[in-house]
Design a binder for these strands. Structure first.
Lengths: 88, 88
DNA sequence: GCATATTGCATAGTATACTGGTCAATATGT
DNA sequence: ACATATTGACCAGTATACTATGCAATATGC
């Protein structure tokens, strides 16, 4: 049907996700921030669902070895879009 | 084994992906920018693989009805992380 | 070929994400 | 209970994403 998810929902979901994997690794916000060379405030805002840059999110995902997986998703999605394109 | 994908690769991949779905919808950068109430420069930078905010990316994905799908991915990933957590 | 639309890139000003710091409230461990 | 660590929230200053604009290079359509 129609889109029910809002941008705010996604940002909050990402924040909760980052928090859960950070806990999995038994890291404090300060420790994670230090690993990524960003401030704790940046981690705090990300986890709180405020606006942030992709660089910040991707630094987190790189730290947690999620970049290759994400890259596959993006490449698949791109291939799908380009395949659809070529039908016309 | 080890992570081979770099942050820059992801941003470029996202840029190419956005460009391909924009073309699918037969929109110019200016038209998409107007739909999202952002500047063409912002779309240009996103597609070029420069740094950008999640708000910008999510506005694009919302326009292309991709938020629900993205939300599912995030919730699944979060569930997985929390399930792993509870094993300890 | 030509005219028009679109794109890539640069630049200056504005908005805002990021930084570094502090403090109170809340967890955590002994 | 207590001491310590962690978190959430705020604030002032800095870095940078976003805006608006212009222009050259490249597509697109006639």
């Amino acid at each position: 049907m129609f889109e029910t998810t809002e941008i705010k929902d996604i940002k909050e979901g990402i924040g909760e996700y980052v928090k859960s994997i950070r806990k999995l690794r038994k890291l404090s916000q300060s420790e994670l921030a230090a690993l990524l060379s960003v401030s704790r405030t940046t981690i705090q805002n990300l986890e709180a669902g405020n606006n942030f840059t992709v660089d910040t999110l991707l630094k987190v995902m790189k730290e947690f070895d999620l970049l290759d997986q994400l890259n596959k998703h993006i490449q698949d999605a791109k291939q799908h879009a380009e395949a659809t394109q070529s039908l016309y």
